[in-house]
């Protein structure tokens, strides 16, 4: 038996909204420690890694580890029915064929219960080594989201350069070229603050289309941490009370 009660159901709604355009069918691994998932997008360019810690749920029980194959598209449809103030219970019997979702209103005035049919999915688990990155950028998630969105109007590729003092977001398109440079600072204003942890200068190119999809998670966390090393995928990490959502994106290489 697996059962998890989340008092703040909105966070689950936001998580699923943040991944549904990247991955449509995923295996959730449930254990006594956590609910987790790892899934690549269809083109194998981006990877989503989610961990929700059991200890952060109001109630949590998992008698034996289980893999739950879920259509994210259909889960998103059901979660749309849950109110923003609702609590959410996730429940599955051992060797389950359905995932039960129970949404309960704040004053217990209304309860919705749905059984989502589970899928049997092949999983493609990537072995991602723990590694030290050359540069780590911690900045406002909404500011990063805004920069990516605005630069998308110029072209589809973001050139990201980080040195010890600043980070530069540069683009080059048919209409011209441009860049936005932000200097490391410890401003009191969260949208201005930028922390750099750089051992080596890096300069890499990434598809803005994917970064824009990742930035849907900016509703989950005020900060985003970008980890960069030459010639390996960039990691965008959004941490929140319940756990963390990480996105990996393979860099673009010059032809």
């Amino acid at each position: 038996m697996f059962e998890a009660l989340l008092g703040n159901g909105l966070i689950l709604k936001k998580i699923i909204e943040s991944i549904k355009e990247l991955v449509t069918e995923v295996n959730f691994e449930v254990t006594s420690e956590a609910i987790s998932l790892q899934a690549m997008d269809a083109s194998h360019v981006a990877l989503v890694v989610l961990v929700l810690r059991a200890s952060e749920f109001e109630e949590y029980r998992c008698d034996r580890p289980q893999t739950l194959g879920v259509s994210i598209t259909n889960l998103a449809k059901l979660l749309k029915i849950a109110g923003n103030d609702d609590s959410i219970i996730l429940r599955a019997e051992d060797e389950a064929h359905v995932l039960t979702l129970v949404f309960t209103g704040k004053n217990n005035e209304k309860m919705c219960e749905f059984n989502l049919n589970l899928l049997t999915l092949d999983s493609e688990h990537l072995g991602i080594p723990e590694q030290e990155y050359s540069a780590e950028v911690t900045m406002s998630s909404s500011e990063f989201s805004r920069i990516c969105r605005e630069l998308t109007q110029v072209t589809d590729t973001l050139n990201l350069s980080v040195d010890k003092e600043s980070v530069k977001f540069a683009v080059s398109g048919d209409i011209g070229t441009g860049s936005i440079t932000m200097k490391a600072n410890n401003s009191d204003k969260s949208e201005e603050k930028l922390i750099l942890n750089v051992s080596d200068t890096v300069s890499m190119a990434f598809a803005l289309r994917y970064l824009n999809l990742f930035n849907k998670a900016s509703s989950l966390s005020d900060e985003v941490v970008l980890s960069l090393s030459p010639e390996v995928p960039v990691v965008l990490k959004f941490a929140f009370d319940l756990g963390e959502l990480k996105y990996f994106l393979a860099p673009k290489i010059a032809e």
């Binding site: 690549m40 688990h125 072995g127 590729t157 190119a205 995928p233 393979a250 673009k252 010059a254």
Partner: peptide, 14 residues
């Protein structure tokens, strides 16, 4: 235009 790499070029499947 730069080419987009694939994640499997960086990480092995387990």
């Amino acid at each position: 235009t730069p080419l987009q790499n694939s994640l499997s070029e960086f990480y092995s499947c387990v």
